[in-house]
Design a binder for these strands. Structure first.
Lengths: 226, 226
DNA sequence: TCAATAGTTTGGTTAGGATCGAACTATGAA
DNA sequence: TTCATAGTTCGATCCTAACCAAACTATTGA
């Protein structure tokens, strides 16, 4: 009985379309202001404000005030993980009836899943790392292999710093668009950071879509080949 | 926009207290009839019936007819996983104000989480397996070690059969009651089966609670010591 | 100090959906 | 066949919560 109440409380927060759209927008990983989120959800500012209070009250969002702006972000990885797992269930409900538009296609190719690379590019990267023996993949269980340590360090990641954090180094995250796994965890996040830093990929404004630059795609594919 | 709609659709199914209670009851892993679920949720049969149609329609439940009974169960592990992840988020929202009753205490000790052992006993088992080097644990990433293969085979599990399934062998599942991980995946499920089979533990009727027999607890602890 | 922008609060409207009783269908038992 | 039990469908009621407009507060800039 108790468990059910808790379940319902959290789920009902996500269960409203306006709020769900806000949360989906925040899956992009960047903090957004109340007005941006109102626009995203297609409601007026007052309505958005009420929703945002509920979400923060409910522990799903974290808010930081900056001057006359209020930036909202997901409260943590556990929330992001929960949202992805809900999307995962949604994705199993039969293939989409509507044909994917161009926007959806871009999403399917490469997008950010909270703070790491997802979509076909993410899956390809995950598979390549497994194939080269950088990661030891036992379905959902992923561990870093010695060969991988060298590779990631060479690529510019600071593994020792990451190990000191509580967050797991590698994690498999089920991709709702492709129904296969991509790389999450702190290495996943750091890889995306580095790839953006090197300008292989550019984040599209106010969206989860990632766009490869022509040379970036080449470099990325060269990396996958090892 | 699209992602938000999907999110809301699934989440709103879980977001109703009556439905959430039904789902929580089904986390026990056993299929239940419509009347049992009505009782569990505290609603009349007609209401329950409506909810159950929505849940099956929505792809969260699977129903099998048996004579004049209809047995409902979770549609799959992805649904169970989603529910646990929602509970996980709920658990982070500050410690419970109300003191845990005796029922809650039993739950906290040992319960079934869909099909594997959870609660303090589950966490203890997970830690022991990690400590003995049966499992290699890198936070959430868990892999089976050679030493573990021998152990589990000796304990009576058929690993080769499990490997042929799509389900991962080992997975860490965050325990909402203890805020630490326990063992899920097919090995987790098989371990619970075996432990019940050997009568170390007995499932309490119509509940997720597991009760150790006195000798069972001794054997269990002996196993943990290795 | 005044104007402009960001966000919250208040009050009133509306719609969706949860609920139940009563009538109906289906399966099993006598 | 007839009765009992399991479950669904229908119709009506009721309540919550989402929504917006307008008024209000807070921060920045001039």
């Amino acid at each position: 009985m108790k468990a059910g109440t808790d379940l319902a409380q959290i789920a009902s927060l996500v269960g409203d379309p306006a709020r769900a759209n806000m949360l989906a927008a925040l899956m992009g990983g960047t903090a957004l202001t109340a007005s941006e989120l109102a626009l995203e959800a297609g409601v007026t500012l007052p309505t958005a404000s009420a929703h945002l209070s509920k979400l923060t009250e409910g522990g799903l969002l974290r808010v930081t005030r900056q001057g006359r702006h209020r930036y909202y972000a997901l409260a943590g990885h556990h929330v992001a993980g929960m949202l992805e797992s809900i999307m995962g269930v949604a994705a199993t409900l039969g293939p989409r009836k509507v044909l994917p538009g161009p926007r959806d296609n871009a999403m399917r190719q490469a997008r950010v899943c909270y703070d790491h690379l997802a979509g076909e590019a993410g899956v390809a990267m995950f598979d390549a790392f497994g194939g080269h023996g950088f990661l030891k993949v036992d379905d959902e269980a992923v561990t870093l292999a010695a060969k991988g340590e060298r590779f990631f360090e060479d690529f510019g990641l600071d593994l020792t710093a990451m190990r000191s954090k509580r967050r797991p180094l590698c994690r498999a995250c089920l991709d709702w668009s492709v129904r296969r796994s991509h790389l999450a965890g702190s290495i996943g996040a750091a890889m995306l950071d580095r790839i953006v830093e090197m300008k292989w990929i550019r984040r599209e404004k106010d969206s989860r879509i990632l766009r490869f630059s022509p040379t970036g795609r080449q470099s990325f594919e060269r990396m996958l080949r090892g």
